[in-house]
Amino acid sequence: MTNTLIHLSSSPYSSLACKEGLDLALVLATFEQPVDLCFSGAALSLLYNHQQTTKEDGKHLYKLLDGLEFYDIDNIYIERDNELTKEVDIWPGTKALDQKDWYALFSQYQHVFRF
């Protein structure tokens, strides 16, 4: 059994990276492997509330956030005081880490994969 961090940093609307990163997270969870998520950079936009996307933008990936609990994916980390999340409403299920803990996060896992 290994623990894995999936780090999403790409925009959910400019490539499939977030989609395929989340797919990997769901598969790991399905195989009962502990998996946590963290968001930074352009991927943070996935967490914004009140998204109204069209079919051309791809699947409504943000809807999956509320479903993560059914996959036992309970730790979804972001960095506190990030410019990109400061003044917007974001999905309430994240855990905000101070800078020191955020940096330390990446050495706490056997595997870190970035998308």
Partner: peptide, 11 residues
């Protein structure tokens, strides 16, 4: 192969 094969590789 499915992603399950990758999980096996990881382990």
């Amino acid at each position: 192969e499915g992603l399950g094969t990758f999980v096996e590789l990881m382990n």
